[in-house]
Simulated assay, not measured.
Amino acid sequence: MKTCLTAAACTALGLVLATQSAATEWNASVWGKRRAFTEHVEKLAELVSEKTGGEFTINVSYGGLSKPRENLDGIEIGAFEMAQFCAGYHRDKNRAITVLELPFLGVNTLEEEVAVSHAIYDHPAVLGEMAKWNARIIMTSPMPQYNLVGTGTPPDALVDFDGMRVRATGGLGQAFEAVGGVPTSVAATEAYGAMQSGVVDTVAFAQHAHLSFGTINEADWWTENLNPGTVNCPVVVNIEAYEALPPEHRDVLNSSIDEAIAHYLVNYGELLETWDSVLKEKGVTKAKVPDEVIAEFKAKAADPIREQWISDMSAQGLPAQDLYDLVQFTLNAKRGGN
């Protein structure tokens, strides 16, 4: 009887230990507060938990694990399993994906942004570069074209950008610099303070960020049509943690990505539908930059910066022309071109 009880107890203990070992808990490092920009991360966490009956959980931390500019470093050392970062925060670490931050790239919709981003993420040059940081990109954080908020008189001539101190990162910063602007790449969480204190005159953000980080509250105007480009902010996972997942959990994670992106697109679309009412509520004027000024801006920023990027990245051993061509091919395919 004692032997039977002991055997039964051992069997039960073994089942408990097996159940415990099958459970997976990840931490995801993002920043700011929950907003449209993080909704796909939140949805992914929700989906994997639901599909595994709570056996796979992702704890989303808003600044508690790392600073925004250090998320890729945290992924490299395994400080957490998932993170969001923006390419412009450390362009030397993620050179290949900066093709997606070139100014006036021609991406018009969030769906197009998803398509070109994921095509680039799957390129061998990107996979190899990210692997150096023990990172694997699993999805993008698609954002619309950035536009400026500012105080005083909005720009209506190219000369108005000369000397303008603008919070803009990556290719956007280069674009404003090409027309005489003075870009600064303060983190998103510091943009409001920089604007309020006069460190910058204007801030370039997508709509959700102007709301989330309060820059819209300091603004007199918002440029509704400048559309100089956007930033690219992938969600990455630690390769070792990803490969250590039980196969069933890895399958759940992979199969939930498209659902998470779809949720993000719906949520962001709802935000865009309310944007005009937000501007009205806050007393912010929609400033339309003259078409001829935008054409001048493009002439100074788009082609020269693109050609310089291709030259510089090629010199560093990256297939820069291939990456740029892949963006254009994907855009054409997304639009039903031949």
Rank of each mutant, 00 (worst) to 15 (best):
G128K: 14
G32A: 01
Q174N: 15
L17C: 08
K33N: 09
Q174W: 15
M1Y: 01
G317H: 00
A178H: 07
F161A: 10
A115G: 13
D92F: 03
D122G: 12
P103Q: 15
F56M: 15
V126C: 00
G78C: 07
C86G: 11
L331R: 08
G78Q: 12
I120N: 10
L47C: 00
P144Q: 08
Q84N: 14
R335E: 00
T140V: 11
A262D: 07
N338W: 07
S311A: 05
A12K: 03
K51G: 02
P246F: 11
A188D: 15
G173A: 07
F329I: 06
P124K: 09
L279A: 04
G106T: 14
V186W: 08
I77C: 02
D162S: 14
S311V: 01
W133T: 14
P247I: 14
G337I: 05
G53K: 03
E177F: 03
W309M: 13
V182F: 05
V182C: 10
N134S: 07
Y121P: 14
P144V: 12
L5C: 00
G63A: 11
T330Y: 11
L65V: 11
Y264H: 08
Y89D: 15
T202K: 08
V149A: 04
A125Y: 14
L100Y: 06
H208P: 10
R35C: 09
H90E: 09
A262G: 04
K286C: 03
C86W: 10
N217E: 15
